[in-house]
Design a binder for these strands. Structure first.
Length: 466
RNA sequence: GGGCCUAUGGGCUAGCCUGGUAUACUUGUGGCUUUGGGAGCCAUUGACUCCGGUUCAAAUCCGGAUAGGCCCA
């Protein structure tokens, strides 16, 4: 299966062959996390946890079900989610008086509680997050990790004394994102979403998009500024120094298993996946090369090598299955293990370990004496090299446009837009492309709206989306 | 919301029109020989989505259910 020619089929194929997810569970869009896929996702969760804990967020876990009465308090929010939530209508043999919704996201679960938790300005800022499953009834074609009905979701929610303080939180979120994305070796764009595409109930939304090999964008997360749009209906207020009661200003930050989907798309080739070392369930795999006269010696040396690396903190897998080495190479290549270590009679004699990089195919030898440092260094090099390659690939897919006379295929378009809804809709309807929004980070630009010709100092990007 | 298509071992699939013994490959299991890029031989496990109808007889024909896929709005 060729990656560039038909990304959609390639993706489905690789998810199955690399054993990341089993889609045979009999509910569409609700897939089973297999051990290998779950390990990768857990590693991603771990990276997120680490950054959030370091910035003073506390992990919480709210109930899965939300009463209809709470769910419907914010009017825009319910309008946005009405058609894609699951309802629990019965309990045992009884019909429920108040129906329950399976959370599509947790604003309406958390905010009634926030109203109880926040009383004083000293309780602020409140910064919590949870990593849980959420449910959205997708009617379109589902795809592992990219479009599913049960979503492995990360969401942080914060409350602040003022709009400015909430804005500082958004800046912190952007900072956190850059750290996480670096570990995932993922490039991304930050765009302030159009008014008609922002999160239901938000003041504004920053979309986080990455580009797939077919030139379509994949939204991997979003950051929202709510102002007091939710704190008003939910009555989340605090008492300030002067004894006045004020509504809190809120933000949220959400990402999901799409991060894993993005990694699969960004780092892989026709031989399979390439896992970024910080995400890889196994960072190195040891393949003992046994011949009939040295079996016990090699087996013992391989065990010792695995123990050393593991003690050093490297996630290592010793593959001592009774199979040919070549067959093992293929197995671990398709699963994307970044580094392969071969240990055979020749290596033991020479006091080295033979390595092969998954990303470049480069082979070499590391002195057994310094094996821990050697492996660590190689993993770092692989990580940097993956990031650079992905960054280049993303940049190559952006095309600056002066006119719309001919639309290139498989590209992200960048052009001037006056920002008005009429021009925006006209563009989206005519070209069947989605406007991603204007850059979140300041950017020098002067041009003309590509639709109406009005002068503008902001570019916008548009693309087909996954 | 409207329409079309599909369902056979773990995976992929033949058979269905024209009713009667279910095919190949792959995987799994056991054994022996092997092991520096997908090993070979032998043995072996394993399936007609479900409910009903027609029939001496249903994977096959008919009706319904369920699940999945596609197209249109």
């Amino acid at each position: 299966m060729e990656k560039e020619d038909n990304f959609g089929d390639w993706y489905i194929d690789i998810v199955e062959k690399a054993n990341l997810s089993d889609k045979r569970y009999p509910i569409k869009g609700m897939n089973v996390w297999t051990p290998y896929g779950w390990k990768a996702m857990s590693n991603i969760d771990g990276l997120i946890r680490k950054e959030l804990d370091a910035t003073g967020h506390d992990e919480v876990c709210f109930p899965l079900m939300i009463p209809e009465t709470e769910f419907k308090k914010e009017k825009e929010h319910i309008k946005g989610f009405d058609s894609e939530v699951y309802w629990v209508t019965h309990a045992g043999l009884n019909e429920l008086d108040v129906r329950l919704v399976l959370r599509p996201t947790s604003e309406t679960a958390m905010y009634p509680m926030f109203a109880l938790w926040v009383r004083s300005h000293q309780d602020l800022p409140l910064k919590v997050y949870q990593i849980v499953n959420t449910f959205r009834y997708e009617t379109k074609q589902t795809r592992a990790f990219m479009r599913v009905r049960e979503i492995h979701f990360f969401e942080s929610h914060t409350c602040h004394v003022s709009e400015e303080d909430a804005q500082r939180q958004i800046e912190e979120d952007v900072e956190i994102l850059s750290k996480i994305a670096k570990k995932l070796c993922l490039p991304y764009f930050l765009s302030v979403r159009t008014d008609w595409d922002k999160f239901p109930g938000a003041y504004y939304t920053v979309g986080i998009d990455t580009v797939m090999p077919n030139g379509k964008t994949l939204q991997i997360g979003s950051i929202h500024h709510y102002r007091t749009n939710f704190s008003e209906p939910y009555g989340i207020t605090y008492e300030n120094e002067n004894g006045e009661h004020k509504h809190v200003h809120q933000t949220t930050y959400g990402m999901s298993e799409r991060l894993l989907g993005a990694i699969i798309g960004a780092h892989s080739d026709d031989s399979g996946l390439i896992m970024p070392p910080d995400v890889a369930p196994f960072q190195a795999v040891i393949i003992p090369i046994i011949s009939k006269d040295n079996g016990p010696i090699v087996a013992e040396a391989a065990l010792a090598l695995a123990a050393r690396l593991s003690a050093y903190g490297i996630r290592v897998k010793l593959d001592n299955r009774d199979a040919r080495p070549g067959s093992k190479y293929y197995d671990w290549e398709i699963r994307g293990v970044p580094l392969r270590l071969e240990l055979g009679g020749r290596d033991i004699e020479n006091g080295v370990v033979t390595f092969a990089r998954r990303d470049t195919g480069e082979k070499g030898a590391i002195e057994l004496r310094n094996i821990e440092q050697g492996v660590e260094l190689l993993l770092k090099i692989i990580s940097v090299s993956l990031s650079e390659k992905a960054e280049k690939s993303q940049i190559s897919k952006v095309e600056d446009m002066d006119s719309l006379d001919s639309i290139p295929e498989g590209k992200i378009l960048r052009f001037g837009w006056c920002g008005c809804e009429e021009c925006g809709h006209k563009f989206e309807d005519t070209y069947d492309l989605k406007i991603l929004g204007t850059p979140y980070l300041p950017e020098e630009y002067s041009g003309r709206c590509i639709i109406c010709g009005k002068a503008t100092d902001k570019p916008t990007m548009a693309a087909r989306t996954m």
